[in-house]
Design a protein around this nucleic acid. Structure first.
Lengths: 199, 199
DNA sequence: ATGCTCAAACGAAACGGCGCGTTTTCAAGC
DNA sequence: GCTTGAAAACGCGCCGTTTCGTTTGAGCAT
């Protein structure tokens, strides 16, 4: 992938070298996938990118910052919009699990969560990110509300939190190959809770 | 806490020294609480326990093993049994969050989850543990089933997984001071999903 | 425009420091 | 004599930083 950095990539003068930045980000992703979070060190990334450590430290103040940018470069998961809430939720989770399994996104996100447990920067970044995107799930639920499929009183933040928690836990415990039935069942419980009139 | 190890604690001959083991476990807990997971190293624990590193490595093959034993020494959280499922679930989550906040259990468990992302041993131990205890939540739900409060067809594993996920996510994102209303709301959604007749 | 100087970023190498996991040494008690 | 424990030292790797020489754009004067 990025293992043979362009030998012509050299300093381009008194401004940031985008080639270096790219090489570093790609190397970071590659190291993460190949060696896992345990083998993810600034040294290893620098070696892999054929870059100097100071170059990395200049642009990314912490391991967490680098991880975060790698994560943000990832392709986004597809969010279905079928017109039925339950179908959307199950489809989204299936897409998400497949995405996490089949691309490096899963490794990167797992690492970010782990890093957040010991690095304040990572924790803040993760919180920002979660809050900022308001999660795809929230949008799915809001759409269902807008078309009157579920009561307007439903607190989409709470529901989205439940779904997101489910996804996180499966990611962190390496159960992304969960069969569709389990996903469907979990979503179904939440779904009925949403749809039922408040007691 | 364990900072002044008994100066009289010395080798007791050809068997394991329980005083040393205790001192090491207590030191590990103290280091984790005071310096966090980032500062948790075998060296630091050995220093704190006034023990030699080889002594630690002899009895705990990895950092994960030590973490796990520290976690298992913790006091258990109280599981309510009021005769009403919703009350039990909310009460349990409240107890659990308070327990995680006010004792070192939260720090230890967070660290264990983080460690599991880079250490295979920790991952296996965590999976064993989660599976083995079948979670307190599962017992709560099974009780409700036994007294006929909810349909016998309810899959308690799935529901317990939802509740546990909710708890994990709040632990990992440092939101253990969530107000009672949020907990209640989340549980309420799940509850109604359980109670409602399958569509 | 042209040419000069300065500042910035680059890769590479080296630094001291620390934690790793291991090995060795020595003393103590069964 | 056996096992255990404490202590010290080992080589290794990564940390975050500093220094070096080189490359190049930007700013300014001519």
């Amino acid at each position: 992938m990025a293992e043979d950095a362009d030998p012509a990539r050299r300093s381009i003068g008194a401004r940031r070298n985008p080639d270096s930045a790219d090489a570093i980000l790609e190397a970071a992703e590659a190291v993460l996938v190949e060696a896992g979070y345990a083998g993810f060190s600034i040294e290893a990334v620098a070696r892999r990118a054929r870059a100097g450590k100071p170059t990395i430290y200049r642009w990314w103040p912490s391991k967490a910052a680098l991880l975060l940018e790698v994560y943000q470069r990832q392709k986004r998961v597809e969010v279905p919009d079928t017109g039925r809430l339950e179908e959307d939720l199950v489809g989204f989770l299936k897409n998400l699990f497949a995405h996490w399994r089949e691309t490096s996104s899963g490794s990167v996100f797992r690492s970010l969560i782990a890093e957040a447990q010991s690095d304040e920067t990572a924790a803040a970044a993760l919180a920002d990110y979660s809050l900022g995107r308001r999660s795809h799930t929230g949008q799915i639920i809001e759409r269902a509300k807008a078309r009157g499929e579920i009561p307007a009183g439903v607190d989409s933040a709470v529901v989205a939190d439940l779904i997101a928690s489910f996804a996180w836990r499966h990611l962190l415990t390496n159960r992304l190959d969960e069969n569709e039935a389990t996903i469907g069942k979990a979503v179904n419980y939440v779904m009925r809770g949403i749809a039922a009139p408040a007691p």
